[in-house]
Design a binder for these strands. Structure first.
Lengths: 339, 339
DNA sequence: CTTCCTTACGTAACCGTTTAACTAAGGAGA
DNA sequence: TCTCCTTAGTTAAACGGTTACGTAAGGAAG
């Protein structure tokens, strides 16, 4: 129970006017004399008046508050999106709730309930996927940034990358560099990430378009256990030990790519010359590696910006908000493909 | 303006009782018959009733909402703290606002104003420092996790590591491993971080305690420009080029440590044998390096937990909440000191 | 048969704002 | 002089809950 502060009523008393006049002055609405205005403003300032948003929200049915739901803010990619979306919304006067769902359906459900109860003006899902729509009716604008799952049927916008095209372009890049036997490395999705199917499909499609037959031995897939870094390295070792040759690796994730690079270095392979490697996400892992890993950047800035824009547009009752926004990705060439 | 939902009044009408009874049933307070309870509950469920928290907050002067203020959630260390604190508070029924101040005094000031207006029940500062206390009176519980700055005089708790001891222990660790010429590497604080003075003091103190004279040439300090990684490497190269010998490096930060390790490897120094290196923060940089870098872990879990506990205790009007909590750090030995 | 207590409600005030509707006064125009 | 408009306010309802207080009915105790 916080102590109650100075209210509009207190100011009205001190200024000898009605609460309506105080409200009008503070909101620059209605009409009042300059003298009254100055008096009210002075008193409000003297008393350290701060409007009670709970009251305002109740009256106006709008809290100027948005909820950000993400599986895990400590994840580099998500936290960057959270940062940017929050900043943009804040510029437009919105405050953001942060909700870590841990990819847990029940927690997410509870959050949504709470948030609706707390009268948020909108929901922004950042990353992950939601299998079941919430059991309560959510009649709010919803934005999905890199998130799969339907919540509501009315005002929803999806902002994401073209995952299929990313897989395709990564493969294409290696082929452009002269690779003829391109492997795929994937340590299966952690709880946070959407499935890899689309990327894999892009990889397959690209091989097909180039008339390259698929060699099943070059599709290195393993389960995520401890660290995708360790597991990816092992996949590469196993492949080499089995005598399968390749000159390019499409790694679904920079952590995976780093594991691949480490295993290759360990075996004396000249990464970037003998074997080219491309990762995905432009995370710390790709930058910290020696040689630095080429990767495909998803453009967090654009994802966040388009997401925030869509939310603000919907909040502003804009009628023609795009329901689906694809943000272009970008290949970042570093040593592992330029060697 | 969100559409207004089903209110307690609607339910009262449908059930043929008063709003007081509905409220009592929903909150399990007061007295009512089993028949009335079932009726009210059924109707509430049928109508998809969700309590309006703005109304509740207004009446009860409590929003069950806490604000998390951090310079930048996209920072690994901060986002981990944010995740944990949020999760713990959520378990106790609180929702958290996320506020990225960008270490900007004006933004922070604006945030605090907004938050007070939005009637948050408490403030948690995570990281960074605040030079000026806010100009408005903040009569709320405040917790500082790894944050410097005073906000209020009444209910404040500081949760942090003993930075001086960390500097001391890092140095001690190297000395224990037999190092006799221990260098210090520091790329001066980014906007986010508190000053390095305390750590440096710990380093100096430890040398003194061991009767080791300070060699100014071994204090490698440089300004942060692009990347502390690059700058740290350059500091090491310059030092070696100048002919100064050392067999241990206390690096104030894992990024710095990684730069140091890279420069040493480049010069053919056997890191871990010829020169031992210890970093700080147990971040990705220390784990991703080869050889893996020894570091001092600040124990994010404990920082978050003690912070959340302190906040909840203050919210519960607990009288004896510690004003200052020191969380023990922990040396993590890896290859760069075990070589 | 009264008195008193308990149970099961209802009534209405209250939290702090906004705002529709009203009023009173002053000035302009015919 | 009368009408009408504008200005500068006031009054009170409304938003959706919670809760102190009142009350009627029923049962038990004396």
């Amino acid at each position: 129970m916080a102590k109650r502060g100075v209210s509009i009523y207190d100011i009205a008393q001190l200024a000898g006017v009605s609460t309506a006049t105080v409200s009008n002055v503070l909101n620059e609405k209605g009409s009042y004399s300059a003298k009254t205005r100055d008096l009210v403003l002075r008193i409000a300032h003297e008393q350290g008046y701060v409007a009670n948003f709970a009251a305002k929200s109740l009256r106006e049915a709008s809290t100027k508050t948005i909820a950000l739901l993400t599986p895990d803010v400590s994840n580099d990619f998500f936290s960057t999106l959270v940062l940017r979306v929050e900043s943009l919304l804040h510029e437009s006067g919105y405050t953001s709730y942060i909700c870590n769902t841990g990819s847990d359906a029940e927690r997410e459900e509870r959050y949504v309930r709470d948030l609706v109860s707390k009268q948020v003006d909108g929901l922004v899902y950042i990353g992950g996927r939601t299998h079941e729509p919430p059991s309560i009716a959510v009649d709010l604008p919803v934005v999905h940034i890199d998130h799969r799952g339907t919540i509501d049927m009315r005002r929803e916008t999806y902002v994401e990358n073209d995952i299929h095209a990313m897989g395709y372009d990564m493969t294409q890049n290696l082929i452009d560099h002269g690779c003829t036997r391109v492997a795929l490395a994937s340590v299966s999705a952690t709880v946070y990430h959407r499935g890899d199917q689309d990327q894999v499909a892009g990889y397959l499609r690209c091989l097909e378009d180039h008339g390259m037959p698929l060699d099943e031995n070059l599709v290195l897939k393993g389960p995520h256990q401890q660290s995708s870094l360790v597991e990816a390295a092992q996949l590469v070792r196993d492949c080499l030990d089995a005598g399968h040759a390749f000159d390019g690796v499409v790694a679904l994730g920079d952590r995976v790519a780093l594991g691949v690079v480490n295993a290759l270095k360990e075996r004396g392979v000249a990464v970037g010359r003998d074997v080219r490697v491309i990762g995905m996400d432009d995370s710390i892992y790709s930058r910290v590696s020696t040689p630095a890993i080429s990767t495909v950047r998803r453009n967090t800035a654009a994802l966040a910006e388009r997401g925030a824009q869509a939310m603000l547009a919907m909040l502003g009752d804009d009628k023609d908000v795009e329901a689906h926004v694809l943000v272009p990705h970008e290949i970042v060439e570093r040593a592992t493909t330029l060697g």
